[in-house]
């Protein structure tokens, strides 16, 4: 979800596996955690690097749409809250980059792959945050959708990834609540404020549903990831759960979910709802969303503009270390 469409492998049957692969799968089936220096199939390592990397990039790029509003927050308290949230996202990116690095890829390589387009980030961050209500919608819907995916990943098979998820989930709850709180204030404010809240919901609803990735019937590579326990639920399961949880919250706010097919289905004990426009999703993933160029451009610029600072601190540290050795 923060990692959409991570290309995995076709599911390997037990008889196709080597002895080492069979033993590895048995450990996962027994609920054991896989730790960095232990043997793992090369495909497991590659899949995880892609998944964790994409997840990390999403956290970092995800700072941009929100950072857009820090200087324009309507009160000092809202500004402090938004700053704290955006700072958390940087931390989440860092926990995840660190987890990916335990698989034998360097931080610089990961960042290079983001900048070259070899690795993606979540499609959701290619949509603009046009009004202050969008900041509420991002916390409530986008972080809400992220939590749906991240809570089960706390039990994923790779130790460093699972541990990063535990930390992230603790902090993510604050993000969703501050978003819902902001939406509540807007939805119960002046008619104009309520209209902003409704407009934000209208624009963020379907992109939020897209965060879970394509429908299971079109998502052919999930089976191996699920056998490896690096993906715990299917895309459709999580999307259903998200709609079931979020639709009543929208109702509570007095807002209307922009889907006239949304209706409670007693039989399946869940809502029926419209699928997002998947053509739009594939366009956004392919780089043609409303903000793709801005987002990646901002990341590349920050990296390039910061090069003198990174190099300078490193040069200073080397000089001091050399002086210390000379003094001893």
């Amino acid at each position: 979800m923060y990692a959409q469409m991570v290309a995995s492998q076709p599911l390997k049957a037990a008889e196709e596996m080597s002895d080492a692969e069979r033993a590895f799968q048995a450990r996962i089936d027994a609920g054991e955690k896989i730790e960095p220096k232990e043997w793992m199939p090369e495909a497991y390592r590659r899949t995880l690097i892609r998944q964790i990397g994409q997840h990390a990039h999403s956290e970092i790029v995800g700072q941009l749409p929100e950072g857009n509003w820090i200087t324009r927050a309507p009160s000092l308290q809202r500004k402090a809250i938004l700053l704290a949230k955006v700072q958390d996202e940087a931390g989440h990116g860092l926990y995840l980059y660190s987890a990916a690095e335990t698989l034998g890829i360097s931080r610089d390589e990961l960042i290079e792959m983001l900048h070259s387009g070899a690795m993606k980030y979540s499609s959701i961050f290619n949509y603009p945050t046009l009004t202050w209500a969008d900041i509420g919608a991002v916390g409530w819907l986008v972080d809400g959708a992220a939590i749906m995916n991240q809570v089960p990943l706390q039990k994923c098979s790779y130790g460093p990834y699972a541990r990063a998820m535990v930390r992230i989930c603790k902090e993510e709850s604050f993000h969703q609540r501050q978003g819902f709180d902001l939406m509540t204030k807007m939805a119960r404010g002046t008619p104009e404020q309520k209209a902003f809240a409704q407009d934000a919901l209208n624009r963020f609803w379907y992109p939020s549903l897209m965060m879970f990735g394509p429908s299971d019937k079109d998502s052919v590579h999930s089976a191996q990831s699920m056998a490896w326990k690096v993906k715990i639920n299917t895309n459709d399961e999580l999307r259903q759960k998200f709609v079931d949880q979020t639709a009543p919250q929208a109702h509570y706010l007095g807002l209307t979910v922009p889907d006239d097919k949304l209706v409670w289905n007693e039989e399946k004990n869940g809502y029926d709802f419209s699928e997002p426009d998947w053509r739009e999703f594939y366009e956004v993933v392919a780089g043609n969303g409303p903000c793709n160029k801005d987002r990646l451009g901002a990341r590349v610029k920050a990296w390039d503009d910061g090069a003198w600072f990174r190099d300078g601190l490193m040069a200073h540290a080397r000089k001091r270390a050399a002086a210390k050795i000379a003094a001893e």
Binding site: L94, S98, A164, R167, L313, M314, A317
Partner: peptide, 11 residues
Amino acid sequence: VGSLHAADAEQ
């Protein structure tokens, strides 16, 4: 608790 990159111990 985790790891991070830094130029020196102080940072």
